[in-house]
Structures are given as C-alpha cells and as structure tokens.
C-alpha cells in the first residue's frame, strides 16, 4: 500500500510542479491582463474585496474586461514586435544550429576522454554571469574593441558591428549555443556507429551518409535544441538591449516598456499572454503531429 501511494505521488509530482510553477502564475498573469491600469499599490484594478465575500468576488469578476487585448489589436506595433521577435528568434535559432551542429558532431566523434573536456568547455561559460558574458561582447565588438584591433593588426579595415543586428545575432548565438549543442550531442553520442558503416557498405559516401543517416536520426535533438533556443530568444531582452542598435524591435522590450515605462501591468500581461500562446500553440501542434506520425507508423 505504502509503495503504491509513493508511486502515485511520483506520478502527480510533475503535474503539481506544472500547476504551482506554471499554471498558477499564468492564471495570475491572465487575470491581470483583464484588469485595468490604476494609480495605486499595486498599480492595477480591480482588487478582490475578500471581506465582501461572494459579492466581492462577483464585483471583481464583472470589472474584468478585454480592453487590453483590444489595444493590442488596435496598434500594429505589437504585431510588428511579435513578428520581428519571431524573425530574430528564427534566424538566431538557425544560426545556432549551423554553428552548434558541427560542434556537437565533433564532440560525439571524439574519444570519450576528449569528449568530457569539450563538454566541460561548452558548459564552462555558464559558470560566469550571463550579463558579464554579454558585456564582454561589447568589449569585443565595439569600434575600438578586440575585433577591430585584430583586424587592424592583420591590415584589414575595421567593422562596425556593435549596435547592429549582426551584434544581436552574435550575442544570441553565443548565449544560446549550449542549449543547441547539448541535446544534439546527447542524440549523436548515442547513435549506433554501425549505421554509418551500413550506409557506407551500401554505397553511400561519408558526406551522403551524414545527410541520409546522421541528420535524420539527430532530428529529435535538433528539435529539442531548436525549441530550447527559439522560445527564450523570442522573449530575449538583455542581448538586444545591450548589443542591438536602434532598429532592434523585440517583444521583450515591448513588455518592458508596458510594465516599467507605461506602468501598465495589464497591458504588459496581455502582451505576455499572447506571446505565450504564439509559442505554445505551435509546440502543441507539433507534438500532436509527432504523436500522429508515431501512431500511423504502427
């Protein structure tokens, strides 16, 4: 009996976690997005009047509305910011993949000892503060930074990279690369080497085997890595803020403006809710389709 109860507890633990740390906060944010801005502490209305009991809750419910969402619709700023963020995240994820895949592949093909050292090298930067690492890029990319000093030393003209989109992509790749490398590495490392031998045996030269065998089999890792990069990149605030220039419009900044500059928590919440939905819906659809594909295969 006791073990059964323990098992049941273990089974609901993830749901408990999801409920406490995701659904409940999300419900709060959702509720907030239906509220109105107010000059008060906290700066929104209505508040539930618990002392009035059921009537208080009823009054609270009736004061909620969709005004903030109407605003999101009325100004194309939000749409543009969403699209721009999605584009940044998509290109950033793609670049991470292009840089990260060869790294993961190289690691997976190394001797186990070297592998651990490389793994450590990938994780090591995480031991320093995220902000310090981004600031370091400022020092590298600024007009008189390390990059241009290096270029000058070999007689090349300097580049103006800082405060451009290129700098944002450099920052995004740098910060999110491990999230791409590790899942791909995990899949590649487990890959059966005899599959490549089989492909070679059946007449496939190495580069073709890479595309026909290695890549398709690493897709779960690629998907995981892409999601791990793409989702936080959409909401990324620090990297574009520090490395980006004037033309960098991203949804993270929009939420910041709503929350801090406009002091409009309901609108900020609405932007966040829509952001979450734009991210969650494709993922859910993707998983559905994956499940169906698995089903169909049986």
């Amino acid at each position: 009996m006791k073990t059964k109860r323990g098992e049941r507890l273990a089974a609901i633990a993830p749901f408990l976690w999801l409920g406490v740390f995701f659904l409940f906060p999300f419900a709060l944010v959702l509720k907030l997005s239906f509220s109105d801005q107010a000059l008060a502490m906290p700066p929104y209305a209505p508040q539930i009047d618990w002392s009035a009991g059921l009537a208080g809750i009823r009054a609270f419910m009736s004061a909620l509305d969709l005004e903030t969402y109407a605003r999101l619709k009325s100004d194309d700023l939000y749409l543009v910011a969403y699209l721009s963020s999605l584009r940044f995240a998509a290109i950033g994820t793609l670049l991470c993949l292009l840089v990260g895949y060869p790294i993961a592949l190289g690691m997976a093909r190394c001797a186990p000892n070297t592998r651990n050292i490389l793994l450590l090298a990938v994780i090591l930067p995480f031991w320093t503060s995220f902000l310090i690492r981004v600031y370091a890029w400022i020092a590298i990319l600024k007009p008189e930074g390390l990059l241009n000093m290096g270029l000058e030393a070999i007689g090349l003209p300097g580049l103006s990279v800082l405060n451009t989109q290129a700098a944002v992509y450099v920052g995004l790749i740098y910060c999110y690369l491990p999230f791409m490398v590790l899942p791909i590495y995990a899949v590649l490392e487990k890959q059966d080497h005899s599959l490549l031998e089989a492909a070679a045996d059946l007449g496939s030269p190495p580069w073709k085997s890479f595309w026909q065998v290695t890549v398709p089999l690493s897709l779960p890792g690629v998907t995981a890595g892409a999601l791990l990069c793409f989702i936080p990149m959409v909401g990324e605030f620090v990297v574009p803020d520090l490395l980006g220039g004037v033309q960098t419009l991203m949804i993270g900044k929009t939420i910041w403006t709503e929350f801090f500059a406009n002091r409009d928590w309901p609108s900020a919440s609405a932007v966040a809710v829509v952001l979450l939905l734009t991210l969650v819906i494709p993922i859910v659809l993707y998983q559905r389709q994956q499940a169906k594909a698995l089903e169909a295969g049986r």
Binding site: L77, L249, D264
Partner: peptide
C-alpha cells in the same frame, strides 16, 4: 496622466524603432 504617458511612450517607440 497615464493616458498621456502611454502616448508619449508610444511616440518614443516610434522614434527608437521607426515603428
């Protein structure tokens, strides 16, 4: 007031991002 603040911030976003 918050309405004007919002308008000012909206205009500023236009300045900064061109949107």
């Amino acid at each position: 007031d918050p309405k004007l603040v919002r308008e000012i911030n909206r205009q500023w976003t236009r300045v900064v991002t061109g949107r």
